[in-house]
Structure formats: structure tokens, C-alpha cells
């Protein structure tokens, strides 16, 4: 078992023929991911990387039965791409694009709300189920198969955590990069919930950062649901100054509740194994699973 994507997922790439889309689609195919085609408006009927190109997501879904989409469309058109995927019946929409205007995301997240789909991202590294499907931009070799699930707002910090976990002789069920924007489709809580319900996942790593309430909401949910599996948590940005955006558009301390310190305190109160040092994520995981 795994969550969101697996070896049977049929994936299309939106923004397939662009440089980003091409590069990462190639890497995904090389990894063994079942990429069934791509979408670039106006280039329908062509072939790219040995896969068919479609004009619309609807076409692609009809012809390939795709159920997952990964979006590399430039920021100005990305929200539209998300809504197009949702309308065409794509079940999991993974948006890598960074820099989408907030107003566009307000509209897109409202549009998809009552449709049967799940948005991951935007501004995220994607989702990987090791050995089955890499739907993202992460270096595949870092992620070995195992029983630890990862939820993270950050790209390279996810790789860091996975690497540390693997070096402890453990592995990953699914790693979910939820993204660092102020508005994202799948929250920390929802991603943790998916992994909590996954029978193969025995431990969850939850990596957050300053800004917003997502980690606190997730921590409270974990507690309310009886701490069924151990959760190891880290929050980046203890040293970040108030009121400044730290790279990710959502990483900004506004009030007293969204500092690293406040989040860690809430997580601790909810029974999460919080590490203060980002160098000790793997060690802590090994400790709590008794490996």
C-alpha cells in the first residue's frame, strides 16, 4: 500500500513540452513512473518523449484514462491548468509551479472544492512512492522503500529527511511535498491523515516551517485521533525574523502563534516527537520505531 500515487497511477504532464516539463517528465519516465502522455495547448497530435501530446486535459483523460496530473505550467497560467485538470476528472493534481498569484489560487481552490479531486501544492516538490512512482522533481535515488511516511512543506528538506531515514536502515512508504505557499490544496493535517490510514506506514515524519496554522492543526488532529502511530516533527525557521518572507511565500511570521517555537510547543503537547535539530530527524525516527 501507499498513498496518492503508485505503480498503477496513470500520469499526464501539463506543460509537457516546455523545458521544465520535458526535463522532469524524462526523469520520471526513467524512474519507471507510468507517464501516459502530456498536455500542451496547440501541440495536440504530436509525440514528445515517446508519449502522445494532447490539446486539452479532457482529451488526454479520454484517450489514456489518466487519473493523476503533474503541472509545470508557468505561474500566470497555472491556476487555469489546475481547474482544467479538475474539470476533466483528474483525481490527484500535483502542482510544482512556484509563484502563482494568490488571487488566482483563491479562485482555483474554490473551484475544485466540490469536485472529486485532490490538489497537492502548488510550489511543492511533488509526491513519491519509492519503487513505484515518482511524480515530482525530487532525486529518486534518495528515497528507498520502507515504512516511514513523510509530509513536508519544503523540497530539499524532504530529501534531507528521507536521506537521514534511509541511512538509519529504514525506508519510505510515500513522501508528500505539500508546498510552501499561503494557499495549498492538501494541508499538513490531510496528508498526515492519509498516512495514518495507510496500513504500510508505521511512522510519520512531519516537517513544517514558520507561518500559518497547518502544523498545529495537524498536531491536534493526531492527538484527537489517539496518536495511533508515532509522529516525528521538525519546524524550520526558529531564527527567522518577524514579518519577513523567507523564500517560500507562506513562510512569514505574522503573530505569536505561527513562530517555530509556538508550533513546536503545540506539537509537543499533542504527543509528537519534536526534534530541535534538523540533523536529528533520522535518528529520532529510528528511536521511535525501535529500529
Amino acid at each position: 500500500m501507499s498513498v496518492l500515487v503508485n505503480k498503477d497511477s496513470k500520469i499526464i504532464v501539463q506543460g509537457f513540452t516546455g523545458s521544465e516539463g520535458t526535463f522532469h517528465a524524462e526523469q520520471m519516465i526513467e524512474y519507471g513512473t507510468q507517464v501516459v502522455g502530456g498536455v500542451t495547448p496547440g501541440k495536440g497530435g504530436q509525440e514528445h518523449l515517446g508519449k502522445p501530446v494532447f490539446n486539452t486535459v479532457k482529451d488526454a483523460v479520454e484517450k489514456t484514462a489518466a487519473d493523476v496530473s503533474i503541472i509545470f505550467v508557468p505561474p500566470a497560467f497555472a491556476a487555469d491548468a489546475i481547474m482544467e485538470a479538475a474539470d476533466a476528472g483528474i483525481k490527484v493534481i500535483i502542482t510544482i509551479t512556484e509563484g502563482i498569484p494568490v488571487a488566482d489560487m483563491i479562485k482555483a481552490s474554490d473551484y475544485i472544492k466540490n469536485r472529486d479531486c485532490r490538489l497537492i501544492g502548488p510550489n511543492c516538490p511533488g509526491v513519491i512512492t519509492p519503487g513505484e512512482a515518482k511524480v515530482g522533481i525530487m532525486p529518486g535515488f534518495v528515497f528507498k522503500k520502507g515504512k516511514v511516511g513523510i509530509v513536508s512543506k519544503s523540497g530539499t528538506l524532504t530529501y534531507e529527511a528521507a536521506d537521514q531515514v534511509v541511512k538509519q536502515g529504514l525506508g519510505i512508504t510515500t513522501a508528500i511535498g505539500i508546498g510552501g505557499d499561503p494557499i495549498i490544496g492538501t494541508t499538513t493535517k490531510e496528508a498526515v491523515e492519509l498516512l495514518m490510514n495507510d496500513p504500510e506506514t508505521e511512522c510519520i515524519v512531519m516537517i513544517g516551517e514558520i507561518g500559518g496554522q497547518l502544523e498545529a492543526d495537524a498536531a491536534r488532529w493526531v492527538k484527537e485521533n489517539g496518536n495511533k502511530k508515532p509522529v516525528v516533527g521538525f519546524i524550520a525557521g526558529e531564527t527567522a525574523p518577524k514579518g519577513r518572507t523567507m523564500g517560500h511565500a507562506g513562510a512569514i511570521v505574522g503573530g505569536a502563534d505561527d513562530t517555530a517555537e509556538a508550533k513546536k510547543r503545540i506539537m509537543q503537547e499533542c504527543g509528537i516527537h519534536v526534534v530541535n535539530s534538523p540533523a536529528e530527524i533520522g535518528k529520532k525516527v529510528a528511536e521511535v520505531v525501535g529500529a
Binding site: G155, E238, G247, A251, S277, P278
Partner: peptide, 15 residues
């Protein structure tokens, strides 16, 4: 490289 890792690195410097 990466905003999250950059913040984590700052935290590590402090530690």
C-alpha cells in the same frame, strides 16, 4: 538550495 533547508541551516548555525 531550497527555502526550507535554508531556514533549517540557519537554525543549525544557532545551535
Amino acid at each position: 538550495n531550497g527555502a526550507g533547508l535554508a531556514m533549517a541551516t540557519m537554525d543549525l548555525i544557532k545551535m
